[in-house]
Amino acid sequence: MKKLMILLLFFGFIAQSFGQKYYTKTGKLDFEGSVEAFEPVKASNETTTAILDVSSGKIAVLGLVKGFRFRNALMEEHFNENYMESDTYPKATFNGVVNGFSITEIGSKKEYTVEGDLTIHGKTKKVSTTIIIVKNGDTIEVSTNFSVAPGDFDIEIPSVVREKISGTIKIAANFSLVKR
């Protein structure tokens, strides 16, 4: 009887810590590839999904490319049609792991490294960057900044506009995750 109780407690504990997920549907992704003296090339997506498994540190992010909004409508059209080809590749995803993540450590701001596969324009590349995680009451705030080169994802920038679009695109992610 005692053994059974211990066993039950044990499995109960596992079930609780296992698959504990925090998520958002309205995460923010910003990207900027502006060049000084030209019109800013930037957009943001406020409908990004992100899921963090707090028991394993696994993180999954999915941004729908059509969800990136530009101030300039023509720029948005070109972004979708010529560069990201969002009819063919509607998603941009990241699947990775936060190294050494532990939910008990994030009471105050903590910096981690995150590694994983970034898929943009149907092309996958391994990336590694620093990520800041902080627990704020019931929400876990996750933020990161990194740069990518369009060429790494087979995105060609025609020579006519090459001067106006930076060779490195800065991406910023900000997610407020809540328990699922």
Partner: peptide
């Protein structure tokens, strides 16, 4: 419609 989110 901006697409399908296969995570959720």
């Amino acid at each position: 419609c901006i697409g399908y989110d296969n995570l959720l």
